[in-house]
């Protein structure tokens, strides 16, 4: 099976729920377990929240999610054209956050990595950030 989707929306916090629910709806055709859906929803929520808070720093611009189903693989990208990340490796360290005053726990990437099979980040300061995520669906042991 092969299928693609593209979703573009404003970087406001009310759209965090919209983004994860829409992505969950897209993956239902893969016949995922509830656990797998919850995993993907959490990862998408983290990436979108990062784009809103860190990428755009609260300003309203566009966030784009793309989804691709290829056999048992779900591939997602979450993209913003915000401030970018100078040191991606540092940003992905557990508990590291640039916004402690906003009660960011520094666990966003940790959760993405825990719930997806692969997470990769491409970013350039001043240009924006793309988070690539992959998860194999339907292969979890019951």
């Amino acid at each position: 099976m092969k299928n693609q989707m593209r979703l573009e929306f404003d970087s406001i916090s009310a759209n965090e729920a919209f983004a994860r629910v829409t992505t969950a709806a897209f993956m239902t055709q893969m016949n995922p377990s509830m656990e797998e859906v919850a995993d993907v929803k959490t990862a998408v929520s983290e990436a979108v929240t990062n784009a809103i808070i860190h990428g755009y720093r609260g300003e309203v611009h566009k966030i784009v999610i793309t989804g691709e189903i290829e056999e048992e693989w779900l591939k997602l990208t979450v993209e913003d054209q915000g401030v970018g990340i100078a040191d991606v490796e540092k940003a992905m360290e557990p508990l590291y956050t640039t916004r402690p005053e906003l009660e960011r726990s520094g666990m966003g990437f940790l959760f993405m990595e825990a719930f997806m099979d692969e997470v990769r980040v491409e970013s350039e300061p001043g240009k924006g950030t793309v988070v690539f995520m992959k998860k194999r669906i339907g292969c979890q042991e019951a």
Partner: peptide
């Protein structure tokens, strides 16, 4: 549903 923002809270 709870993500890392819940942990921050």
């Amino acid at each position: 549903f709870c993500d890392s923002s819940g942990i921050g809270m």
